[in-house]
Each structure stands twice: as structure tokens, then as C-alpha cells.
Amino acid sequence: MPRVSEEHRAARRQQILDAARRCFLRDGFHSTSMQDVIAEAGLSVGAVYRYFPSKNDLITAIAQSVIGGADGVFAELAAAEPPLPLVEALERALAYVDAQTGPDGILPLAIQVWSEAQRDPALAEFVRATYTGFRGHFTTLARRAHAAGTLPADADPEAVGAALFGLVPGYFMQRILTGSPDRRTYLAGVRALAAGPIPA
């Protein structure tokens, strides 16, 4: 009997994940059953359970694709040469967000992942570690800006990185929940805040 190739296994796993993502976007994590995913994927029960023994395994894998996909984008921003001005780095991060907030994008699932992380300790740990890593990329951006003299000498890069990163989920939460503001408006507000005096 021929052995199943690694490529075939990867394609089958992705087929199941794509089906699960469609189900989760349509009906949410809690209203989607494994039977829904099996029907959506058009595979046998055994084929699906071979790759994902439980719905929690599927949710975790979806979370890794939803949240983990941004890591490469943010890492590239942090490593760009020459170092990016902070607002430009934010603008590029928000361009990625815009590309992922439509009906076929991955970010609408991020809110479901956050909610599920409140009840699943393993998923909560994954989310914590991943978002800490994201924040680290923005802290690197702030450190490089500080070294380049584009931040005040007494600025704390850790604090700046945390605040800068916080603007990203703040933007896509508003976009997903209310449909606005657009990126240009949001960035105009950020620039206005950056230009004005901030009380201690």
C-alpha cells in the first residue's frame, strides 16, 4: 500500500482548517460542531479526527493561523533598514490589518480567539505568549527610534512600544465592530496625539 506523502497530509490538514475557518466565521466557535466541519470539508469522520481529535484542537490550530500570521509582518517592520519612523511602521501594520478584516480575512476570528482564551488555559497561554511577542516587535521599533534620536531622550521604549502596539488591535476592533474609522482617519488622530503635549 503506498505511503501517504507529507504534501498530501499537509493539503488534507489545510482542507480541514479551511472548512473550520468558514464554519467558525459563519456560526462562531460554540455553535459549530465537529459534524459541521466534517460536512463542510466533505471528508469522512475518520479523516477529520485523524488530524484534529477534538474541536479544541481545531480552535487552537485556527488561533495559531489567525494570530501567528501577523508575527512575520511585525518582525519585518521591526527589522527594516533604515529604521522606520514609528507612525510609518504603524501605517504599514494597519495596512496588513485592512487586508485581513474583510469577510475572507482572518482577523474577525481573532475576537473569537480572545473570548475562547478566557476559558481555555492552553489557548490563553498561546495568546499571551504570542501577543507578548507582538509587543516585543513594537518595543524594538521604539528602541531603534530612541537610538536614532526620533524619540525624546527621556522616553521609555518599553512604554512607547506597548502604547504603539495597543493601537493595532484598537484599530481592528473598531473596524470589525463598527466599520470605521478608515486607516487615514485613524492615522490622522494618531499624528495629532503625537504632536500635542501629553501631561505626565
Score class of each variant (00 low, 15 high):
Arg143His: 14
Thr60Ile: 03
Ala80Trp: 10
Gly170Trp: 09
Asp104Met: 05
Leu107Arg: 02
Ala99Asp: 06
Ala80Gly: 00
Thr139Met: 14
Tyr49Ser: 06
Ala75Asn: 01
Leu25Arg: 11
Ala41Glu: 06
Leu164His: 05
Ser180Cys: 14
Phe172His: 05
Ala70Val: 10
Gln14Met: 12
Ala93Glu: 07
Pro197Ser: 11
Ala93Arg: 03
Leu77Tyr: 04
Ala117Asn: 11
Gly189Phe: 00
Ile106Leu: 14
Glu125Trp: 07
Ala122Lys: 14
Leu94Phe: 03
Gln14Arg: 15
Glu88His: 10
Gly149Gln: 10
Asp57Gly: 02
Leu107Asn: 06
Ala142Asp: 12
Glu76Trp: 12
His8Ile: 15
Ile62Asn: 03
Ile16Gln: 05
Trp114Met: 14
Ala63Glu: 04
Pro157Met: 01
Phe24Cys: 10
Thr178Ala: 15
Ile176Val: 11
Leu17Lys: 12
Gly46Asn: 04
His146Ala: 07
Arg183Asp: 07
Phe172Trp: 04
Leu25Phe: 01
Ala147Gly: 00
Glu158Cys: 11
Glu125Val: 13
Gly68Ile: 03
Phe24Gln: 13
Ile176Glu: 07
Phe74Arg: 00
His137Gln: 10
Ala10Thr: 04
Asn56Thr: 15
Ala188Asn: 03
Val127Lys: 05
Glu40Asp: 08
Ser54Thr: 14
Ser5Lys: 09
Ala163Glu: 09
Ile59Asn: 03
Glu125Tyr: 11
Ala194Ile: 03
Pro169Ser: 11
Arg9Tyr: 12
Phe134Thr: 04
Ala80Arg: 02
Ala78Glu: 03
Val127Arg: 09
Asp36Ser: 09
Ala63Ser: 10
Ile198Pro: 06
Ala11Leu: 07
Gly170Met: 07
Ile176Cys: 07
Leu109Glu: 06
Asn56Gln: 15
Pro2Ile: 13
Phe126Glu: 13
Leu187Arg: 02
Ala75Ser: 08
Ala95Asn: 00
Ala145Glu: 10
Thr101Glu: 04
Leu43Gly: 14
Leu109Ala: 04
Pro85Ala: 09
Arg128Ala: 13
Tyr96Ser: 05
Ala75Cys: 06
Gly102Phe: 09
Asp104Trp: 04
Thr139Ala: 11
Ala162Glu: 13
Leu43Gln: 12
Asp156Ile: 00
Ala41Leu: 06
Pro169Glu: 01
Phe24Leu: 14
Ala78Gly: 06
Ala155Glu: 08
Ala129Tyr: 02
Leu151Gln: 04
Ala163Val: 15
Ser44Tyr: 01
Pro181Thr: 03
Leu84His: 01
Gln112Glu: 15
Pro103Cys: 13
Thr60Pro: 12
Gly69Ala: 12
Pro85Phe: 06
Gly72Lys: 01
Ala39Phe: 13
Ala117Leu: 12
Gly28Thr: 14
Arg13Ile: 13
Gly189Arg: 00
Thr139Gln: 05
Gly179Ser: 00
Ala20Gly: 01
Pro157Glu: 00
Arg135Met: 15
Pro53Asn: 09
Ser33Lys: 09
Glu76Val: 10
His8Ala: 15
Ala75Trp: 08
Asp57Glu: 08
Gln112Asp: 14
Gly170Pro: 05
Gln35Arg: 13
Phe24Asp: 08
Ser33Leu: 10
Gly136Ala: 09
Arg184Thr: 11
Ala129Ile: 08
Ala142Ser: 10
Arg21Glu: 14
Gly149Asp: 06
Arg119Pro: 13
Ala148Ile: 00
Ser5Leu: 08
Arg92Val: 02
Gly133Leu: 11
Ile62Pro: 05
Gln112Ser: 02
Pro152Leu: 13
